[in-house]
Write a protein that binds this DNA or RNA. Structure first.
Length: 563
RNA sequence: UGGGGGAUGGUCUAAUGGUAAGACAGCGGACUCUGACUCCGCUUAUCGAGGUUCGAGCCCUCGUCCCCCAGCCA
């Protein structure tokens, strides 16, 4: 697979420029990056940006990109998340080869480094409570005060730290802190906690440890151990960089990677934070983490997004330091572009209305040849059964059509795609409801295939399925989860108030062409004139498809009507 | 009123002292057996004020606005 598809001719983003400079100057002969998720939740489209960046840079420079789980907080982490994260990254098309790591692999080394820090007089065991530590830390504008335990002897610190590890003290009773500067204007430098007691089993190390290292201390050392050259993270870690550098400058680590921060992804019409996504799942607003309306990787997969579309989206939005909101339309555009190239075309009628072709022989069934992709003849053709009774789309007939309506109506002629020209004769309405229940037409036998030998022009072409051979197929129409571009913009309004009540519509009466019966769950198709759909991975069975709408086609008629 | 970042069309991204470019959105048109695709055209931007320079989005100065930081989370 050519994963570099969209990275070829674009100008380099600022991170890739730094990397190119480092290569050119000889600072580095090779590049090593890493993707460092915490296994405490599912990956979403925002992570995809980071994945594409880190693995993309790896691919471009023939350098590895390590997969490293940042698993230093066992109270939140589970191996189930490890599995799902690996699955999602692989599905996105990336491969870490043998470079699978866990921060927990480094617990022994991390401990040894901490002992070194103590020996250097650069770390101390502090007995202050959490609350006291906060009080001593000072505020944004006032310096902090030194802990009364700050000047403990090295020997005492060593002893206490060893006993912390041995489990002699209660959770929360003591921590190990780096001794830096309580007056620093950067709060992260005011003697940050680097180890805390957590009497919790770890998903990988079990009960071996009851003290666990903190992120700031762990991440930089893990990077250094692995020989990472460029450690890419999001903007909120900018303030942490001085601490990242302090640890690596203080300790004799194998190398000193450079941390570079970039802006995280924000998308309109959705929420991105783990906390809010969790609320949607736990509150039953969506049907789980892989609900097709969710922008989790698993949700996108279930929705039918090809990984290549997500990759090209990530390439398109670029990397910068400015906080930005990408319009959902850009993501949708990326899927349409991708699927337009690859998805076979198919006939599917979502809101069937029966058409009876009065002059067509009752028992006859013809086979009409239909292209699988009009622009790609190499994708071949299939045969569509045609007969006297067919279904067409409810919206393709109007009793009183407005101007510029090209479809079927009284006294009109339209083309049935790949079949015949038909002309309206009459319609039958339900006596009680007034609803149109069937339409009678005649066909022109001379127009087989869809072209009139007399050269007469027919503006409208509509899709159809043969009533007898059609396959009933439940369809779910998905739409944006929220009705406003920035659902979580207002602090005093619950973002859930903006949930789109029509984000999922379930249609039970859809009729699709028989070819769908032979398709594998997960396959993507275009229902001509309607949109891209996929056969649901879970609910579709061979021969009994259930389809999800991935995205609609652009629809200039709908736009016209909206005016 | 501490520290760290950031400001280019409606939204993203580029221009690395030398014609402000591309994508998405929008508008208009062509083509069309998908009102799709494709193609053509158009509208819309350098936060402000000074300065340096032949020349500034880019360099300097002073402002303005926005974001992040006071977890024993990552």
């Amino acid at each position: 697979m050519d994963i570099q598809e969209n990275t070829q001719e674009k100008p380099l983003d600022f991170i890739r420029q730094i990397i190119a400079d480092d290569l050119r100057s000889g600072k580095h002969a090779a590049i090593v990056t890493r993707f460092p998720p915490e296994p405490n939740g599912f990956l979403h489209i925002g992570h995809a940006k980071s994945i594409c960046l880190n693995f993309g840079i790896g691919l471009e420079n023939n350098g590895p990109c390590h997969m490293r789980f940042d698993d230093t907080n066992p109270s939140k982490e589970e191996s189930a998340y490890v599995e799902s994260i690996m699955r999602d990254v692989r599905w996105l098309g990336f491969d870490w080869g043998k470079n699978l790591f866990y921060a927990s692999d480094y617990f022994d080394q991390l401990y040894d480094y901490a002992v070194q820090l103590i020996r250097m007089g650069k770390a101390y065991v502090c007995d202050l409570t959490g609350e006291q530590i906060r009080e001593y830390r000072g505020t944004l504008t006032e310096p902090g005060r030194e802990s009364p335990y700050r000047n403990r002897e090295v020997a005492e610190n060593l002893d206490l730290f060893q006993r912390m590890r041995a489990g002699e003290f209660d959770e929360g009773s003591r921590v190990l802190r780096a001794k830096i500067d309580m007056a620093s204007p950067n709060l992260n430098m005011r003697d940050p906690v680097i180890y805390r007691i957590l009497k919790v089993a770890h998903h990988r190390t079990g009960d071996r440890w009851c003290i666990y290292p903190m992120y700031d201390y762990t991440h930089c050392i893990s990077d250094a151990i692995e020989g990472i050259t460029h450690s890419l993270c999001t903007l909120e870690f900018e303030d942490h960089r001085p601490l990242y550098d302090w640890v690596l400058d203080t300790l004799a680590t194998p190398c000193h990677p450079r941390q570079i921060e970039f802006a995280r992804l924000n998308l309109t019409y959705t929420v991105m934070s783990k906390r809010k996504i969790l609320q949607l799942v736990n509150g039953g607003y969506v049907q789980g983490w892989d609900d097709p309306r969710m922008l989790t990787i698993s949700g996108l997969r279930r929705r039918g997004y090809p990984p290549s579309a997500i990759r090209s989206f990530c390439a398109q939005i670029g990397i910068g330091k400015k906080e930005s909101w990408i319009d959902m339309g850009v993501l949708e555009d990326a899927v349409r572009n991708d699927l337009n190239e690859t998805a076979p075309r198919v006939m599917g009628v979502l809101d069937p209305i029966k058409v009876i072709i009065d002059n067509y022989p009752e028992s006859r069934v013809e086979e009409m040849e239909a292209q699988n992709h009009p622009q790609r003849p190499e994708m071949g053709a299939r045969m569509l059964p045609f007969s006297r009774e067919i279904y067409i789309e409810g919206s393709d007939f109007m009793e009183n059509p407005p101007k510029k309506y090209f479809r079927l109506g009284p006294d009109r002629e339209v083309r049935l795609r790949y079949a015949y020209l038909i002309r309206f004769v009459s319609m039958v309405k339900d006596e009680k409801t007034g609803e149109i229940v069937e339409i009678h037409c005649t066909y022109d036998p001379a127009t087989r295939g869809g072209t009139a030998p007399d050269g007469r022009k027919v503006k409208g072409t509509i899709h159809w399925v043969s009533a007898n051979q059609a396959l009933a197929c439940p369809v779910r129409l998905y739409d944006r989860l929220f009705t406003v571009a920035h659902p979580d913009a207002e602090k005093d309004v619950d973002f859930k108030d903006y949930l789109n009540p029509d984000s999922m519509k379930i249609l039970d009466n859809c009729m699709v062409e028989p070819a769908l019966a032979g398709m594998e769950p997960g396959s993507q198709v275009q229902f001509e004139r309607q949109g891209y759909f996929c056969l649901d991975l879970i609910d579709s069975k061979k021969g009994r498809p259930v389809c999800n709408r991935i995205v609609t086609l652009r629809d200039s008629w709908a736009k016209e009507q909206g005016r």
